[in-house]
């Protein structure tokens, strides 16, 4: 529905552009846009270029221009993969993100269906509470959670993260899915009820198939949020082999005052790639989940 509206608006925008001359468009649109794109993308370019540079180019700007690579090398990646626990970090991050995402999706689908469709007494207030829960930032929860994680004996295990990530994933996913469920016509559900379907059957066979785009949006966004999470992973994990990529790169690759910029950048690049690739396949879902949470 919204896609149609958006397309309509998009074709509309061409409407009056002929009123603006080309030189004027260059100055008011293309040049600012080019500057924006340059600034937004330069750090990634710089990350990539640095990670392929051999050390003698990396630290010698007088003989080599810093903006490109003369003799590309994979040394930094080799060091990263074979001399550090990077592969473990990748595996941990992937495992934790996937499990936390599915756990949160399951809980959110059930909760969103109950709030939006079963409409039990007080469901409106629970919906509001879920939205407020989304606004609770990890930086005020990590200290009490750390004492809990310690008390439960989960310190330095993957479970510590799998169980705490839903604190920000469930509110987000529930809020997003409530919006999706709202757009599914009641009549479909009523027909199924008359035909003798139970609520669980309705959820599994009617609501879920119809909200696949919503589930994908919520899922990949939750995955990205888990992949990017930092403060819980930094606080609850201490041994190198249990760390996630963001924590591992910043705590293990920095040795004292000697920064191995090449491997640091290689680590940042490899850690960003999975989400960037996922993103490239699901751009529209990302946009809709991001704006969906904002627009209600």
């Amino acid at each position: 529905m919204t896609d149609v509206a958006r397309q309509g608006a998009a074709t509309d925008t061409q409407g009056m552009d002929y009123l603006v001359s080309l030189p004027r468009r260059v100055v008011t649109i293309y040049i600012p846009l080019a500057i924006f794109l340059f600034v937004l993308l330069f750090p990634f370019y710089w990350m990539a270029v640095t990670s392929f540079k051999p050390n003698e180019e990396l630290y010698d700007y007088s003989r080599y221009s810093p903006f490109w690579v003369v003799n590309p090398t994979l040394d930094h990646f080799k060091k990263l993969f074979f001399e550090t626990d990077y592969i473990d970090w990748m595996w941990n991050t992937l495992l934790i993100s996937v499990v936390a995402t599915f756990l949160s999706l399951f809980a959110s689908v059930c909760a969103a269906y109950a709030i939006e469709r079963l409409r039990y007494t007080g469901s409106r207030y629970v919906g509001m509470a879920i939205f407020l829960a989304y606004l609770v930032p990890p930086s005020i929860l990590f200290i009490p959670l750390a004492t809990m994680v310690f008390g439960l004996g989960l310190f330095d295990t993957r479970w510590a993260l799998i169980l705490t990530y839903p604190t920000f994933l469930v509110p987000f996913c529930t809020w997003l899915l409530m919006g999706y469920f709202k757009s599914i016509p009641y009549e479909l559900e009523e027909c199924a009820l008359i035909d003798g379907a139970s609520r669980v059957q309705i959820l599994a066979k009617i609501i879920l198939p119809l909200s696949v785009p919503g589930l994908i949006s919520a899922g990949i966004f939750a995955f990205t949020l888990s992949w990017n999470e930092f403060i819980y992973a930094l606080t609850f994990i201490s041994s190198s082999e249990n760390k996630t990529v963001p924590v591992g790169v910043i705590t293990e690759l920095v040795e004292g005052d000697v920064y191995h910029w090449g491997s640091l950048m290689a680590g940042a690049l490899c850690g960003s790639l999975p989400v960037a690739i996922l993103y490239s396949f699901f751009v529209e879902h990302y946009v809709s989940s991001m704006t969906g949470a904002v627009k209600e």
Partner: peptide
């Protein structure tokens, strides 16, 4: 529009390292 969103998608810690 797709590439504009990249800084938001990439883990903050990793772009902060850049």
């Amino acid at each position: 529009r797709a590439i504009v969103l990249l800084p938001f998608i990439v883990p903050t810690v990793l772009s902060a390292i850049a």
